[in-house]
Design a protein around this nucleic acid. Sequence first.
DNA 1: CGCATACTTGAAATAGTTCAAAAGACGTGG
DNA 2: CCACGTCTTTTGAACTATTTCAAGTATGCG
Lengths: 248, 248
Amino acid sequence: MRDWIKPALGRFLDRLLLRSALGATERQAILDLPARAMRADVDHDFVHVGDKVTHACLVVDGLIARFAQISSGERSIVALHIPGEMADLHSVVAPNVTWALHAMTPSTIVQIPHAALRDLTVRFPAIAVAFWRDCVTDANVLAQWTVNLARKDATARVAHLLCEMLTRYSTMGLAQQQSYAFAITQTNLADALGLTQVHLNRTLKRIKEAGLAIKQPDRVIIHDLAGLAALAEFDPAYLQLVGDRAPS
Amino acid sequence: MRDWIKPALGRFLDRLLLRSALGATERQAILDLPARAMRADVDHDFVHVGDKVTHACLVVDGLIARFAQISSGERSIVALHIPGEMADLHSVVAPNVTWALHAMTPSTIVQIPHAALRDLTVRFPAIAVAFWRDCVTDANVLAQWTVNLARKDATARVAHLLCEMLTRYSTMGLAQQQSYAFAITQTNLADALGLTQVHLNRTLKRIKEAGLAIKQPDRVIIHDLAGLAALAEFDPAYLQLVGDRAPS
DNA sequence: CGCATACTTGAAATAGTTCAAAAGACGTGG
DNA sequence: CCACGTCTTTTGAACTATTTCAAGTATGCG
């Protein structure tokens, strides 16, 4: 039943190791973290604004969004998290929830107690740095989204997100060639891109007609990555995949 | 000549203490950090994209922007940093620069070697958490900016930034009643808000005419904070000023 | 098979941009 | 201390990307 807890922690460890070097003891300590599995229903918040949380959520399966609700009822997605990522590692140091967590598809997540994570940071300074660095990487993605929202038109914004998600699914080993399972509705995608659903639809159509990429209901297929990246001015440097993995 | 290095570190410590509890030894360790003063000329980058940096920059005086340059020549400001804040504490764990640092006004900054900061995180887990938390707070500001850019119109965006900066200057003890020294040009402000300079100018005019606030060349004066905050849907929760300052 | 949800398309409205030029501020040197 | 050049702010008018409203077509689930 919960034999995927270990693999899930393994994938989280892999993600940390992409950017941080950890010794054998430290790696084992991550794998031995206590965890509890949980299902998150589609279109449901499972962490609410104002809550004070005591565990962090590791995405095992599905697609998780961090988002804000404006008074007008409009929503804005502030981050997307795919399997292997911690949706709210930051909550370890900031447990007062300011952005809800919401399942975009039926998802599986694993809850890891803050106490256990904190304990690791005290015992292993290298793990403290790895967690800190993971949050900094998330923040860098957010900074890039800010740039896209502030200064790029709808087409470039969509193209950029398609490139970013390909890169992220790829590095987690979850992409097939130039295609990845991305079961997000156009309405939700629009909320992540600061567009209306209608305009996103037209923009996707234009991207399809230009032969660059196709968004299917549950999948993205990229036909011309170079063209898409050029349109988006996509430079993956901000994802910090070429980190020097400094030893501490 | 550099007798303001100690006060600068003191102000940085104060900022950390707003959100993190630190013991006497830890506090002293922060105050004893090695630091080197530096002037940053107006309208000049002092940290460049692609650089690999070896020290973090603490703002002593002036106004610092982290920003991106788009191919079209357009710029986008991703963060503003006021005195007492570290403009790039994240560089300790991610030294490859992805966003330039730029002085909006003639500024004084103090450089603190990464090695010294890292050393503190190893010796004092509570300091590691405090630094991590500081970066998470910065990321939360970025998330709020994302929401503003994605879903709020020009007026609400401007109003929101005016409220945010009042709060931030206030908590650093740098505001006078409802007014603060904010010497940023309209062009730069527009780059922080994802607007054109022309439209920002008109928006500021409307805010002034509504009796909400006035932006002078070197200062912001807020006349109706409640009105401005309502217009902006400003809720300071994201600034994490009411943290529980957990002991570690 | 029918209902609900997601996607697609059209036409009108608008917030924000672009281009262009004038007016104001500010420091520097004659 | 006035004249001059530069930089910032202000204003106008035409234009365009995106939104809004509204309706229709797929798609999938029970």
